[in-house]
Design a protein around this nucleic acid. Structure first.
Length: 419
DNA sequence: TCTGGGGTCCTAGGACCC
DNA sequence: TCTGGGGTCCTAGGACCC
């Protein structure tokens, strides 16, 4: 048995905890550079605003309905998430943190307790301790727990908690027959119309479809999903997150960049970020991929987009070696005359620091002690306190965040005041 | 004027090996 | 006139998730 606990409109809810005036008002949270809508309050969803819509296209609607927009504040959401996960972890010996706003809990051995009541306790405690609304779904597989959570969210009569196994078979069938097949975890926006064309348009129909036939028509992935819908677990709980196989860092610029020097600063900055994550998980990178692109939405303007992978002579985690490789690649990619909108780097071929293939010839192995000092200073004094000169000073391409709330829970100077 | 940032897994096809 | 069988590894592209 699994539970899935998921924050409702998570980013918006985090904003509301510290700014109660936002309660009951339509609120959106925007992506980096205040680009698109990435979180919507219930009031905004009711207005028909879709996920991912560019904010500038909503200006008029926002004015009419008084929609409040906030820049995304990941320091705040990340910290609130950590607190929420700590509370939820008290409710089971097994927890998988699945994303910033949801986690699975292993419920084996809880069969004898009335799960719905347990779910209501979870909900009430998160609400009381953190001020965040969550919904809880229970199911015999992760896919079913996800589905139960969806029901808990969408059907007010469930009061935010749904245990699918507690329903009678008839009631369950009726419920599943009323849910669009596209809501199933693992059925995406491509698969949905294809399934519907074959006559499978609700969850019950998918559950009862022939798995062998589905595997032939679609993939082994969908076959597994169907098994999960039938109560056969195919996806395990992953308590400890496995080490990443690749680490990315990329950003759209706050303003177009035209020259190589600007791109070099950005790429060096992103490599710095990625290398920090790399060292935190104790890995070494075997290659660095770098890419740049113009704005694909800007029709009628010259477009250019290219990436390049630069192998390292020996796996490394020293920012300076990684930056050197990335800049080597960037200089080969760069073509003048374009308005660049985004750059990114990806650290690939990651290996554990203990299992590396040494280079045949003598090579620069970097300076681990220096990297440790850099990471410690930055952990203590804030990101970028100690960094490479190549990253630039006060770059003009830095992202725009015009509507950001304070970091209430992570900066002393920005603590909320109660008077 | 203005359109995000991370990830994973699977499959097909090509190159190569014996 | 006729040209095998069994593998691995790599890459690109697609689909999915949040």
């Amino acid at each position: 048995m699994f539970a899935l606990v998921d924050g409702n409109n998570f980013y918006v809810s985090c904003e509301r905890v510290f700014d109660p005036k936002l309660e009951g008002r339509p609120v959106v949270v925007l992506s980096n550079n205040d680009g698109c809508v990435v979180a919507r309050s219930q009031e905004v969803k009711a207005l028909g605003v879709k996920m991912g819509v560019p904010w500038f296209q909503l200006r008029e609607l926002a004015r009419q309905h008084g929609i409040v927009a906030k820049s995304s504040n990941y320091s705040l959401y990340g910290d609130m998430s950590a607190r929420m996960m700590a509370v939820l972890g008290r409710y089971s010996p097994e927890q998988e943190v699945y994303s910033i706003d949801e986690c699975f809990l292993g419920m084996d051995g809880f069969e004898r307790c009335a799960l719905a009541g347990y779910g209501r306790r979870i909900r009430a405690q998160v609400r009381q301790w953190l001020g965040l609304p969550v919904c809880v779904g229970f199911g015999a597989t992760k896919t079913l727990a996800k589905l139960a959570n969806f029901v808990a969210k969408k059907r007010p009569e469930f009061g935010g908690v749904c245990d699918l196994a507690a329903l009678s078979p008839v009631a369950r069938d009726e419920l599943l027959a009323g849910i669009d097949v596209g809501e199933v975890w693992g059925v995406g926006h491509r698969g949905t119309p294809r399934l519907k064309a074959l006559g499978i348009d609700n969850v019950k129909a998918l559950r009862d479809a022939d798995p062998t036939w589905l595997r032939r028509e679609f993939s082994v992935v969908l076959e597994r999903t169907v098994a999960e819908l039938n109560g056969t677990p195919c996806i395990d709980l992953e308590e400890a997150a496995p080490a990443k196989q690749q680490i990315m860092s990329s950003r759209a610029f706050g303003a177009y960049v035209y020259d190589l020097a600007g791109l070099e600063e950005a790429v060096a900055t992103y490599v710095g970020r990625a290398a920090e994550k790399l060292r935190r998980q104790g890995s070494l990178a075997g290659a660095v991929q770098v890419y740049i692109r113009t704005n694909p939405f800007k029709e009628g303007h010259p477009q250019y987009q290219r990436g390049l992978t630069v192998p390292l002579p020996e796996p490394a985690d020293d920012t300076r070696l990684l930056v050197r490789a990335a800049l080597l690649g960037l200089r080969r990619l760069f073509k003048p005359g374009y308005a660049y909108q985004k750059a990114g780097v990806m650290l690939m071929d990651l290996t554990g620091a203990r299992h590396t293939q040494a280079a045949l010839f003598d090579t620069d192995r970097g300076n681990p002690a220096l990297m440790r000092v850099m990471d410690r200073v930055n952990a203590c004094w804030g990101r970028g306190t100690l960094r490479l000169a190549a990253e630039g000073i006060d770059p003009h391409w830095r992202m725009r965040r015009g509507m950001m709330s304070p970091c209430y829970t992570t900066r002393w100077a920005e603590l909320p005041r109660v008077s």
